[in-house]
Design a protein around this nucleic acid. Sequence first.
DNA 1: TAAATAGTTCAAAAATATTTGAACTATTTT
DNA 2: AAAATAGTTCAAATATTTTTGAACTATTTA
Lengths: 98, 98
Amino acid sequence: MVNTKLKNQIDDRQIQIFKALADPIRLEIIEYLKHTDHEIACGEVGRAVDISKTSGSYHFKLLESAGLINTRREAREKYVTLNKSTFDKYVTDFYRNI
Amino acid sequence: MVNTKLKNQIDDRQIQIFKALADPIRLEIIEYLKHTDHEIACGEVGRAVDISKTSGSYHFKLLESAGLINTRREAREKYVTLNKSTFDKYVTDFYRNI
DNA sequence: TAAATAGTTCAAAAATATTTGAACTATTTT
DNA sequence: AAAATAGTTCAAATATTTTTGAACTATTTA
């Protein structure tokens, strides 16, 4: 019997987001994207924060599935930007709400 | 050679706080404390969120060392409250700043 | 068309975090 | 003084997360 109560779903989402933020590499990626106002390829970010492409792939995927970044694939490359609305909804407003 | 750059210290702190928030039990504890306006004993919170006292001890310690709760020991019992200023500084303002 | 580039996937290994129960300290109640 | 209560500590077991390298797809460049 699967538990699908709304409150739990909200918590799962909230946890997923805090987990995504609770890692030094991902925090570096976020800070890098924060001071970049245009979209930027994963590879460029990866080089800036000095990680392997495999590691980058793992972390970008995790950030994306948490809804913290938006991605757009164009042929070979994948471009990313921060998803500000997720920060607003789950981080900035976390303590305020509930 | 130990790295003590200010930026890294800030990040370490930020990560510690997100890690502390990235767990269902600790999130339950926080939500419980959020709707409680007076200090409350660890044991009472532990019973409310249905965890063993050992587990409670672990999670309260972690929340305390992240600065997310304030604690006061009075004889046998330990009373806790949320530390709102940590939320303001590291959570609510996270996306805004930097 | 061959080589280079951007990124993904996979499974194994390594690192970290969490749970558990037993033994413990200190305080309060009977 | 014995028993009960609140919480801590410890080490072992378990679970989860992250890293790694090799093999892969798709696209672009030489």
